[in-house]
Design a protein around this nucleic acid. Structure first.
Length: 296
DNA sequence: AATTCATTCAACCGCAAAGGA
DNA sequence: ATCCTTTGCGGTTGAATGAAT
């Protein structure tokens, strides 16, 4: 038998709070402070358990709570902190004045997580997703296969690719894909570049997240290797902010080669950041790219 | 207009940590 | 050191609402 719920006593009210209950709670706390949450309901004349009162106060009634839509800055702060802290909602909330952990958690689950999935990024690891739907969808999108293949032909290719993935799920790369789907080689006018996976430890295939030639400095769609989770954008010490800041200020950083020049991103290594979160443009360019498929 | 489906978010539940006896 | 109570946190639920059919 498990532990009984905290408020299974008969007669203790649960569910949505009424305006009258809210008023009682606000007035009591404003006058006396919350003190012991367990003792509070009785003292405040509320037929609720202390836990319910605490939740109602901290998540809704507290005077310093900021309500309404999350700003772009708040959004990428959450993304950034989540990539470092994981699901530590209360820790993330300490960096967002006026926002509660519950609110942030809800926003993550209903918006941000889906956005990351849509752009092919694993919301847990903040690394590119390697699962079949994400990979196939990305490839489909990038190669515009729907325009060059018959539907039945695509079914065949997908089946073969699936078999390949099941054999070696950890080693997806464009070279192997091309070998099992030969028709992929002359893919579209986009002239994909195929990196040498052997030279990259724990590589992750990461397609350019936008076709904006100005951002990448090259007209072709490219592939790069994003070697580290986005959490690594956070700088661990306080030096060299300026030099790193410039490199990290746009998605193009993902496609810079080791020597810093624009290229296909082979062996690119990202470390550090300007000591702050990436600018709004970083995320909005990823999220709003019309080329990326909606998987949700 | 009615119904179904999808999304949002306030609230709950249970576990774990913190703190006091 | 151990037990017990309280508080805080993260995962989950379900009612309310909106969108689509």
């Amino acid at each position: 038998m498990g532990r009984p719920p905290c408020c299974d006593e008969s007669g203790i009210k649960k569910g949505p709070w009424t305006p009258e209950e809210d008023q009682k709670l606000i007035q009591y706390i404003q006058k006396n402070g919350h003190g012991s949450w367990r003792a509070l309901p009785k003292l405040a004349g509320l037929n609720r358990c202390g836990k319910s009162c605490r939740l109602r106060w901290t998540n809704y009634l507290r005077p310093d709570i900021k309500r309404g839509k999350f700003s772009a800055e708040e959004e990428h702060t959450i993304l950034h902190l989540h990539s470092v802290l994981g699901n530590k909602w209360s820790a993330i909330a300490t960096h967002l004045p006026g926002r509660t952990d519950n609110e942030i958690k809800n926003f993550w689950n209903t918006h941000l997580k889906k956005k990351l999935i849509r752009i092919g990024v694993d919301p847990t690891t903040h690394r590119p997703r390697m699962d079949l739907p994400a990979t196939l969808s990305r490839l489909l999108c990038l190669a515009d296969l729907t325009g060059i293949m018959e539907p039945r032909a695509w079914d065949d290719h997908a089946a073969r690719f699936l078999q390949h993935l099941l054999r070696s799920p950890a080693t997806i790369n464009m070279s192997s894909f091309s070998s099992i789907v030969p028709e992929m080689k002359p893919v579209s006018p986009m002239n994909m570049q195929v990196p040498d996976t052997a030279s990259v430890p724990s590589p992750a295939l990461f397609p350019a997240a936008t076709s904006n030639a100005e951002v990448y400095g090259v007209p072709e769609m490219s592939f790069g290797f994003h070697q580290q989770p986005l959490g690594n954008y956070i700088k661990q010490d306080s030096t060299s902010n300026d030099e790193l800041g410039a490199a990290m200020s746009a998605p193009s950083a993902l496609l810079r080669d080791a020597d810093g020049s624009l290229g296909n991103g082979d062996n690119c290594s990202i470390s550090g950041n300007a000591g702050s979160v990436p600018p709004p443009s970083f995320w909005s360019e990823l999220f709003d790219d019309p080329l990326l498929p909606g998987l949700i």
